[in-house]
Design a protein around this nucleic acid. Structure first.
Length: 444
RNA sequence: GAAGGCAUAGUUCAGUUGGUUAGAACGCCAGUUUGUGGCACUGGAGGUCGUGGGUUCGAACCCCAUUGCUUUCCCCA
């Protein structure tokens, strides 16, 4: 048979793993710097934990794990695959990190000191149709604070975005908006229950343009004549918004929150642009306050969608029986960041992760000698390996070459007799006779 | 859920009126060089042309079905 992997999944080569680790480590370091603590949750959750949290569409995209044993025991709807799926599967792969986190908070409520700041870097799975930049298995890097209503959290999360992308070495634009402002707009327009419809339409402004949004609004049952007002609204600054929201308490509150966020950040010397984008809506409907999205700055020659997002949600733990806990969080899209760094060629040198010296030997005696000498180098902190098979010297050198190992040491009877080893720089081709101590000195 | 594209050596791909033994590049193995890699040259191994049917004297090529991968739309972020 021809080997293959499931659609929407990927293998990662040693080089790719090194690059991905670099991204994860950079994000992790900043999370820790701001006081976030790691948790990990299982790849599998009870299906009851996951269903109903991501909408009907999301339920269909959940990967379900077939029950062990006689899974047909409780199967009733054999003619309805959608129903049947939930009768023969009690578990599913996690769809995001936020719901498992909410579940964790509720289960460990007694042990957690609120406010609880946690970060989590793990893969998630979605049975979506894979396409460009969209996978069935991908990593999320989340940082959330629960149990605090303060906008100081939002401010710090913005600083985290700023710091991570500064470290990674490319400029981004951090866009903010507030769901209360969008809710206020819906109220002013006289259709307060249409907030989601308006935001979904607004969210597409980038993609389908003003006319498209107008059509979309009408399809969603909103009077198209309101569109000029909506367009006007987009052009407003915070002061004008305050006036616009004279009769909307919610809207006013949203404006005040944004104002407060900017006040917090006014002396923080952000290296990246922070801008209000009233068209920013984001799809998840549990957001209730500030919302964030990060895009690659236009000064970089890269075409890429959003590489991070987040926001505040009230009462996320409510569905699990713990009410009144507010949270705010952000997420990094590691897979897309990978592509950006790749295109901009911003990865540092990973040489320290690979072998620096390969020992080449001729026979069992010299191999044993190499085994022990390599150990000395390792103890000195130098990555070394011994070619494990008795092979022609040519083959061993070829191996060093293919692996990009920068130095080789040839061990033979002469070398063993004198203690002077044939140390070769594979880039220049220069070879010299050195003692083990000299070699260690040279490579340190 | 809808529409398209692709499937030939380990990999990337060539392969038209349908006609002997299906090719290239890279990779792999060996040799030129029995203690020295990259470069070069020489030779070698490696394929049921995704699978099943059909048309035909004859199919990698045409037709149908099927599976897998992939792209776009919907959706999601």
């Amino acid at each position: 048979m021809k080997p293959s992997i499931p659609s929407g999944t990927r293998d990662f080569s040693p080089e790719q793993v090194a690059k991905r680790t670099y991204i994860f480590d950079t994000i992790r370091q900043v999370f820790i710097r701001y006081g976030f603590q790691p948790i990990e949750t299982p790849a599998m959750e009870k299906l009851s934990t996951l269903t109903g949290k991501y909408g009907e569409e999301g339920d269909q995209l959940l990967f379900k794990v077939l029950n062990n044993g006689d899974f047909l025991k409780d199967a009733k709807d054999l003619d309805n695959y959608k129903k049947l799926a939930f009768q023969i599967a009690d578990r599913g792969l996690r769809y995001d990190l936020t719901i498992p986190f909410a579940r964790y908070v509720v289960m460990n409520h007694d042990k957690i000191a609120l406010p609880f700041k946690r970060y989590q870097i793990q893969p998630v799975w979605r049975g979506d149709n894979p396409q460009h930049g969209r996978y069935r298995e991908f990593y999320q890097c989340d940082a959330d604070v629960v149990g605090s209503n303060s906008l100081l959290n939002e401010a710090e999360l913005v600083q985290i975005y700023d710091e991570v992308f500064s470290k990674l070495g490319f400029k981004v634009v951090i866009k903010v908006n507030n769901r209360k402002i969008l809710q206020g707009l819906a109220e002013v327009l006289g259709c307060p229950d249409k907030m989601m419809d308006i935001t979904i339409a607004i969210d597409k402004l980038d993609k389908i343009g003003a006319e498209g949004v107008k059509k979309e609004l009408e399809q969603r049952g909103i009077n198209g004549e309101l569109f000029p007002t909506i367009q006007q609204f987009f052009a407003m600054n915070l002061q004008e918004l305050a006036t616009f929201f004279a009769n909307s308490e919610t809207g006013q509150k949203g404006v005040a929150e944004l104002q407060q966020l900017f006040n917090y950040l006014k002396d923080s010397n952000l290296k990246n642009e922070l801008s209000i984008d009233l068209t920013l809506a984001r799809g998840l409907n549990y957001y209730t306050g500030c919302i964030f999205e990060v895009k690659v700055s236009d000064e970089n020659p890269v075409k890429m969608g959003s590489i991070g997002g987040g926001g505040r949600y009230d009462d996320l733990t409510g569905v699990f029986g713990l009410k009144g806990i507010s949270g705010v969080g952000i997420s990094f899209g590691a897979d897309r960041i990978y592509d950006v760094l790749e295109e901009l060629n911003l990865y540092p040198d990973f040489k320290n992760n690979t072998t620096q010296v390969l020992f080449i030997s001729f026979d069992e005696a010299s191999q044993l000698y190499a085994l022990n000498t390599a150990q000395q180098l390792r103890q000195a902190g130098i990555n070394a390996e011994v070619y494990p098979d008795l092979a022609k010297v040519k083959k061993q050198f070829e191996y060093a070459n293919k692996r990009n190992i920068p130095f080789t040491v040839v061990v033979g009877s002469d070398e063993m007799a004198t203690g002077l080893l044939a140390f070769k720089d594979m880039t220049t081709g220069q070879q010299e006779k050195l003692t083990v101590t000299d070699i260690i000195q040279k490579l340190k």
